[in-house]
Design a protein around this nucleic acid. Structure first.
Lengths: 213, 213
DNA sequence: TATTAATGACTGACCGGTCAGTTATCAGGA
DNA sequence: TCCTGATAACTGACCGGTCAGTCATTAATA
């Protein structure tokens, strides 16, 4: 009864956590926290359900790991972009817009956004981490950039934090639209084009002079 | 053994469905579909769990009723606003902005938005209804208004559907921010002020001339 | 051979949905 | 006005399926 071919599993302690988190991201993003089945996560990660508990204590801890995992690289990217452009505001905005447009077309950020929005009440600690370490920082960085541009006289008067929200909101809404309505037949948006058009619209709308080009 | 005081329940067939839907809205908004308990909905509606099944077949049907209930008045409002302003674009935009700003400050629309986003994959029919009867229509109405203004030469060139998304996205994001992050300590936005500032920003950004005032 | 990664059948709690029984309400008769 | 059935709105204990989490056992590897 011993098939001499492939062994029925391999011992790969180092690789498992990453594979489990990746599988969990996909399942949580598709189903939400409560409707996600540990059996499905395990199956997609190529392990049994029991193996999950060698690396994580509870379902909630897996969820937390997924959220944490999704934060780090994004925060790094945002910091790098803002730091790379102390110069004139239009240049910063166009660079950020282009980068984000390309990013959201490829990275599965949408699933995580949905997850955090949908489960925020049930897991306030997760909402807090996501806010403190990503949302508030990204919004803060953009707010600072806007405020600096206002001081330089480039950007007209107005609440800089609201300007920051106005800048990023359509991109996030575009992602939410894609995740929520496109699967049921909605006309999709070209998110890169949306990012480009919105940056130009906002530049015309925010700049003190018409020296936008 | 018969206490002569208050009866332990009353027969109020006409009022029950509305009360159940209102209670369900609150619980679904707080917990999401899966984590919402029928016992809690029943308790908040002031009935027993069994009574729910006198008026609804399943939990999902209650969910559907909540979503349907939230759609009708909003759609009516949007239609009325766009119909009331065939005239110059800035006037329409300011009217819509003011109305929406006031509305989202008061109406519990946020919970429903979170619900739909969070449960779209698990209940595609609900996402479809929400899209077909609200999101697509609202976006379409705004798109038509933008396109008409472009034809009149008021609004610069650009994808009108993207302009429409750019217009409404910050308001929706403001609501999501309030529902998701403010409960864990985030700095809130003044949504009316946000609506006002965004309308002015977008007018400056979209209009062909600087004849905004 | 010793060690431990990995399995998967199992358990127990939880919750959507049911239904036999209870009680408010009211029409009609005295 | 007070009783008295008839009706159906309402209750809440219960059932059965589902699924997160456990653990005795098996198998890969050093």
């Amino acid at each position: 009864m011993l098939p001499p071919g492939e062994p029925k599993f391999r011992r790969r302690k180092a690789a498992r956590p990453g594979e489990i988190v990746a599988a969990a991201l996909a399942v949580f993003a598709e189903r939400g926290f409560a409707a996600a089945r540990l059996d499905e996560i395990a199956a997609r990660a190529g392990v049994s359900k029991g193996a999950l508990y060698l690396y994580f204590e509870t379902k909630e801890e897996i969820f937390r790991a997924v959220v944490d995992h999704a934060i780090a690289p994004n925060m790094q990217m945002i910091r790098a972009m803002v730091a790379a452009h102390p110069g004139p505001f239009p240049a910063l905005l166009r660079a950020v817009g282009e980068r984000i447009g390309a990013l959201i077309e490829t990275v599965p950020i949408g699933g995580v956004v949905k997850m955090v929005i949908g489960e925020a009440r049930n897991f306030p600690e997760i909402a807090r981490v996501w806010h403190d370490e990503l949302a508030a920082q990204a919004l803060g960085a953009l707010t600072d950039a806007v405020r600096a541009a206002q001081v330089r006289g480039e950007v007209r008067v107005g609440d800089p934090r609201m300007f920051a929200l106005e800048l990023i909101a359509p991109m996030i809404m575009g992602v939410i639209w894609r995740e929520t309505f496109v699967p049921v037949g909605a006309l999709p948006f070209d998110l890169s084009a949306l990012a480009g058009q919105h940056v130009e619209t906002m530049l015309h709308g925010m700049m003190a002079t018409e020296a936008v080009a």
